[in-house]
Design a protein around this nucleic acid. Structure first.
Length: 348
DNA sequence: AAGATATTCAACCGCCATCCG
DNA sequence: ACGGATGGCGGTTGAATATCT
């Protein structure tokens, strides 16, 4: 038996709002407020609408200071940066963009921004001339918390099929929600992996810091790279999916100068060790004593990240992260390397 | 010009969290 | 402590519109 409906569906109007309904709702709320009860509001306002529908209409269209129309480059950057950091938490992202609603941003991301980023990296012909399904990412378990517990259970045949689908894309850009095989194809030095068969990888979204990973003063680096990053490495190898190698700090700096930044979108570097660092216009993680601190981020966002993190922590030994939705990329320190060598991982 | 196909985006659905009696 | 009511959110749908052939 399901839960009771929030309103009498039979006597409730659905579909687009008429100007008359809009003005009724607007006038009522401006005069009396919402009264903290959306369910009761439509009847009071003389509307044959579900309370939820009224709430949505007000929040997305009628309330003051809503911004519609084109997104600016700066907004694009913020959305990308926040999506990269926290995933599809549209309400959190919207809170950072004055006047934008979560619905707007979600639509914008799904219909334009994602493709815009993809388009910069598509090796194949222009989108228009392809079947629309080719533009869609391969099917992948939802990143929502509903399926979080199952994300590590993807079967290997599913993975191989996903990678087949990915051949439609330029491998220098794996986009979002691409599962990565770890660490079976990469010999990392960590001896304390969990969820090792696959990792749901929402483009550098979150990091877990496992109990077995040492923290020291070395700066280990992860790069989510482009062809450029591959060719720049001192002895990199490419296996079309993932590879890693060492390169010097100076080389990394060169890469950073040349390729980082949102104009390219294909490059990302994270600094492991005492401090985890995202791109300059992102924000920073500091990991210490199994807690995460977020700096350069609004207090609201920090709080939401931290609260979600605690809700979804299912293994206190291995999880500290800023998001509920992704597994981790683990990286360990190889002390046999000199200070000038940085361990680097590439994704193609 | 017309039908087919692709895109957009407002709105809905259903789930989870929180509130409150 | 419990459970129903409501709020809030993210994923999805589908009608309207745009573009292509």
């Amino acid at each position: 038996m399901g839960r009771a409906p929030c309103c009498d569906k039979a006597n409730v109007k659905k579909g687009p709002w008429s100007p008359e309904e809009d003005s009724k709702l607007k006038e009522y709320i401006e005069k009396y407020g919402t009264g903290g009860n959306w369910i009761a509001l439509p009847q009071k306002a003389g509307l044959k609408r579900c309370g939820k529908s009224c709430r949505l209409r007000w929040l997305n269209y009628l309330r003051p200071n809503i911004k519609h129309g084109e997104f600016s480059d700066e907004e694009d950057r913020m959305i990308c940066s926040l999506y990269a950091s926290i995933g599809s938490r549209w309400s959190v992202i919207a809170a950072q963009l004055s006047g934008r609603t979560d619905n707007d941003i979600k639509n914008y991301w799904n219909t334009k921004l994602k493709k815009k980023l993809m388009g910069m990296h598509m090796a194949s012909p222009p989108a228009r001339h392809q079947h629309r399904n080719l533009l869609k990412p391969p099917p992948f378990p939802s990143s929502s918390h509903h399926s979080y517990q199952n994300q590590s259970l993807i079967q290997s045949e599913t993975l191989s099929s996903l990678y087949k689908d990915l051949s439609n894309y330029d491998r220098s850009f794996l986009g979002f929600e691409v599962p990565l095989p770890l660490p079976s194809q990469v010999s990392l030095t960590s001896n304390n992996f969990s969820n090792t068969s696959t990792n749901s990888f929402s483009l550098f979204q979150t990091l877990n810091y496992p109990a077995g990973v040492k923290k020291n003063n070395n700066n280990n680096l992860l790069m989510f790279g482009s062809e450029g990053s591959c060719s720049t490495s001192s002895a990199g190898s490419c296996n079309n999916q993932i590879s890693y190698d060492y390169c010097s700090r100076s080389e990394i700096n060169n890469i950073k100068q040349e390729e980082m930044g949102f104009d390219h979108q294909s490059f990302m570097m994270l600094n492991f060790g005492n401090q985890w660092t995202e791109k300059p216009n992102g924000f920073y993680f500091e990991a210490e004593n199994n807690t995460l601190e977020f700096t350069d981020l609004d207090e609201d966002v920090k709080q939401q990240l931290i609260s979600t993190s605690s809700k979804n922590t299912h293994n206190n030994d291995t999880i500290i992260n800023g998001s509920s939705t992704s597994n981790c990329l683990l990286f360990n320190v190889d002390e046999s390397k000199t200070e000038d060598d940085e361990k680097v991982m590439y994704f193609y």
